[in-house]
C-alpha cells in the first residue's frame, strides 16, 4: 500500500504532537494506522534527529533525540564479535564443582573438528574477529589440538584456557610443538595456596597446575593465571602476586572471574542475555551468547554455526538493542 499524502500529513501531525511533548531521552508511542507508515516514521525521525526505538503491532516507539552509540562505552576488545571463543571439546580430566559447562571425564566430548575450526576462524576474521579463545573441557584432551592451534595462531592472537595438568608424555610434545608467538596459555589457579583451589577442583590439582605453569614458562610460553572465585571467597591479591613472581609471571597476567550459576554450579552469578556483555562462543552444537553459558539452551543464539557472520551479527544486534533500550545492567563477565 502506498501511503496517501493526506495520511502522511496526519501521521506527521501525530509525530510532531507526540515527540514535541516528550522530554529528550524519553520515548513516546506513536499510533500507526497502517504497517507501511513505519517507513514514514523512520524517515521523519532520521531527518529530525529523533530515533525509532521499536516497532510494535499498532504503534512505533520513538525516542526523542539521537541515541548515543550504545557501543561507545565498551572498549574495542569487548565489542561483541571482536573475540571468538571456541569450545574445542567438553570432556575434561577434572570435574570442578563450579564448572559452567558440567565438564568431567565422563562428559560427551562434543569436539570441534579441525575443519570446523578452520572455517570458523576464516569467517570470524572476515567478520571482524580480532582475538581467538580456545576452551573446554580441557583442550589438551582434543586429539587434534596441535592442528587447531596452528590454524588459530596463524590467523590471530590466540588464548587457550587449560588446567595445565596434562603436560606430560605425548601431550607435552604437543605443547612443545606449539608456537610461542601469538599464543597465551591461560591456566586456572584459584588461589595462591592449595586449599581453595583443591576444594573446588580436587586434591592435588593445585600442585599439578603450578607444575604445569612452571613447565610452560620454562618452554618459553606466555602464561597467565585465571582464578575463579565464589562470592565471599578472597582474591588474596597480595599472595597471588607473590606467587606470580615465583612463577616468573607478571601480576597483571592474572584474571579473576566470578563463578556463574551455570553447568554444575549450584550457586553463583545468575546471567542472561540482558545482563552479560556477549562474547561470541562456538560449540559443536551451535553459537552461544557467552562462553560461560555454552550449555544453556536460553543462551544459544543459533544451532547454525555457519555462516558465522550471521550469528555474530545477530548477537551484536541483540546486544546493541539491549543497550539502546536501557534495559540492561551489563555486567562485564571476563573469562579471559
Amino acid at each position: 500500500m502506498i501511503i496517501s499524502d493526506s495520511d502522511r500529513a496526519r501521521l506527521a501531525i501525530r509525530l510532531v504532537e507526540a515527540v514535541n511533548a516528550a522530554a529528550t531521552g524519553t520515548t513516546v508511542l506513536v499510533p500507526l494506522h497502517h504497517p507501511d507508515e513505519v517507513d514514514v516514521v523512520d524517515q521523519w525521525c532520521k531527518r529530525t534527529d529523533n530515533s525509532v526505538l521499536a516497532i510494535h503491532d499498532e504503534a512505533v516507539e520513538v525516542y526523542r533525540g539521537r541515541l548515543s552509540d550504545p557501543s561507545s562505552s565498551l572498549p574495542a576488545d569487548r565489542m561483541p564479535g571482536s573475540r571468538l571463543w571456541m569450545y574445542t571439546n567438553f570432556h575434561c580430566n577434572l570435574a570442578c564443582d563450579y564448572c559452567c559447562v558440567s565438564s568431567s571425564p565422563q562428559t560427551d566430548p562434543r569436539s570441534l573438528s579441525v575443519d570446523t575450526v578452520h572455517r570458523a576462524v576464516k569467517e570470524g576474521i572476515a567478520a571482524g574477529v580480532k582475538e581467538l579463545y580456545l576452551t573446554g573441557g580441557e583442550p589438551f584432551m582434543h586429539p587434534d589440538l596441535a592442528e587447531i592451534i596452528v590454524v588459530c595462531t596463524a590467523a590471530a592472537p590466540t588464548v587457550m584456557l587449560t588446567n595445565g595438568m596434562l603436560f606430560r608424555g605425548s601431550r607435552l610434545a604437543v605443547l612443545d610443538a606449539m608456537p610461542r608467538d601469538n599464543l597465551v596459555l591461560q591456566i586456572s589457579l584459584d588461589s595462591p595456596t592449595p586449599d581453595l583451589h583443591d576444594l573446588h577442583r580436587g586434591v592435588g590439582s593445585w600442585q599439578r597446575a603450578v607444575d604445569g605453569i612452571t613447565t610452560a614458562r620454562s618452554m618459553g610460553f606466555n602464561v597467565r593465571l585465571a582464578a575463579t572465585l565464589a562470592a565471599g571467597e578472597p582474591h588474596q591479591e597480595a599472595a597471588l602476586n607473590a606467587l606470580c613472581e615465583q612463577l616468573d609471571l607478571r601480576p597483571e597476567d592474572t584474571v579473576v572471574r566470578r563463578i556463574a550459576k551455570q553447568g554444575v554450579a549450584t550457586r553463583g552469578v545468575v546471567i542472561s542475555r540482558g545482563t552479560v556483555v556477549p562474547e561470541v562462543c562456538l560449540t559443536s552444537t551451535g553459537v552461544y551468547w557467552h562462553p560461560v553459558s555454552a550449555t544453556d539452551p536460553d543462551m544459544r543464539v543459533t544451532t547454525d554455526i555457519f555462516p558465522l557472520e550471521k550469528a555474530i551479527d545477530a548477537i551484536r544486534s541483540e546486544f546493541l538493542d539491549y543497550r539502546r533500550k536501557g534495559d540492561m545492567l551489563a555486567a562485564a563477565f571476563p573469562c579471559a
Binding site: D5, S6, R8, A9, A12, I13, V40, Q43, T48
Partner: peptide, 14 residues
C-alpha cells in the same frame, strides 16, 4: 518551525 518539522515526513499533500 512547525511547518519544517511536518515536512520532514516527506510529501504531505500540503
Amino acid at each position: 518551525t512547525t511547518w519544517n518539522q511536518l515536512t520532514q515526513a516527506g510529501e504531505v499533500g500540503v
